[in-house]
Design a protein around this nucleic acid. Sequence first.
DNA 1: GCCGTTTTCGGCCCGACTGTTTTCAGTCG
Length: 571
Amino acid sequence: MQNGDVAKIFDELADLLEIQNANPFRVRAYRNAARTIGDLPESVADILADPERKLEELPGIGNDLAAKIRTIVETEGLPQLEELRAQVPRGVVDMMRLPGLGPKKAAALFKELQIASLEALKQASESGAVAGLKGFGEKTAKKILEGLGKLAQAGPQRVQLAEALPAAEVILADLRNCPGVHEAEIAGSFRRRRETVADLDLLATAADSAPVMDRLAAHPLVESVLARGETKQRVRLKSGIEMDLRVVPRESFGAAMQYFTGSKEHNIVMRRRAQERGLKINEYGVFRGETSIAGRTEAEVYAAVDLPWIPPEIRENRGEIERAERKALPKLVEPGDIRGDLHMHTTATDGTATIREMAEAAKARGLEYIAITDHSKRVSMANGLDADRLRAHWKEIEKVRKQVRGIQILRGVECDILEDGSLDLPDDVLAEADWVLAVLHYGLRQPRDQIMKRLMTAIRSPHVDALGHLTGRMVGRREGVDLDLDATLKAAADHGTMIEINAHPNRLDIDDIGAAAARDLGIPIVIDTDAHSVTGFDVMRFGVYQARRAGLEAKDVANTRPWAEFKKLLA
DNA sequence: GCCGTTTTCGGCCCGACTGTTTTCAGTCG
């Protein structure tokens, strides 16, 4: 039983309780618990097994929830969940995935019309039964049918930050040029640099909102306006991404930025802090009674509740407020701190540039050292290198070292960890390498035991410097590799194996929670681009964003060190 | 269901927009 399984059960309980019109604060308690457990870097089973520790230490977990977690871990189930499932059909929970349908409406459909599946909902919407129901109407029925159609196609999906970024910046630049607009920024999860964003939250200050909204509505990248009011407009971009525009007065800009950057959980704590001080925070400012006492800048808002400004990337209510209170906020790593890149490909395998071109491009970007890490032979699709070709490739690297001065070029390899647990190159070859990155590419659906055996082989190898593509899940795909992250990181710490944060949005990766856990174990982290071309280095900033979300400082990231220092890590 | 230098009860973050209503509940972020 993994933390994620426990979190899923609590989330489902919250859904079911909501439909049953339970106390909303009770529902919230389950949702908070789901998030706390889901985000926990260590396994709840471990905490339960440790006589020194108690689940009740976790925020939002009291006696009742602790007992439920114990039951779930011990019996892989929860009687309360079974009871609720018997009362509320799965289809009713599914209805809440449709836009405009929440727990109240889903419950009404079930209770009044006995609708218990999406199929039945479709029929009832088409027949007019839904429109006739109290609190519903023609528009609601139409919206339900549209929602069902979309759900059948794909459903609203999160897109990668890197994918959303270009359009977001183009629109932002356009709005900044709109007469009457003083400031425009993108807030939300985009500003928190989450790997994926569900929608974009645009914020503008202007005395009059109408011209700004008209300007956005008329933008060539905008497909349609979904909703529009006095201060808020929602549009759908042609790419399918939805965008909210909020227009606020200038004196509210900082408050609105703080409010719309979130996260929701961070803001709930902020507003509670305000309450404790007899204040109220909303998107317009910080108020004592009717009087605004702050709001022009974000720093003012934080100062009003006795906190220093907190970087957006860590506003997740995962301890940052407590750290801010203790004046112990991390000085987060920045893109400019990165001095080396230890993962890239050339024309020898599936890259598009030569060793020399890659070295020159890296040097032009200010890097002090790089590792050329072409694939090993198992990756035949990419023309992976066997021992002979790899040795010849390294000879080429030595030549380029003489041609391109002022940058260290490591003779590396991205060596596959094979399905049977062995490494794809013999030890004597790996021993000659300057840098070995061990990765899983194949057999990702093997049972966890086998995956772990493979990872342990690599970690124990004296020749492996770092694990790349390490993940509990796969960005861009539904499921992840089934590995025990805790055990992997512990072993890596014991054997001095580094862990890679892969900056490329499409590559296998370790998430920010995993990265934070690695940092806590003292494992050096390397942020790499996995560049396949000379422009491949440009994704570095996305890796840095992720490291920032993990709360990492420059000292936690090995490739921020100057070459002379990094070299010592390899010894 | 959780939580507590306003503790064991009575709170629990806040506001905009829509569609349904004739003043507001539900949904959403």
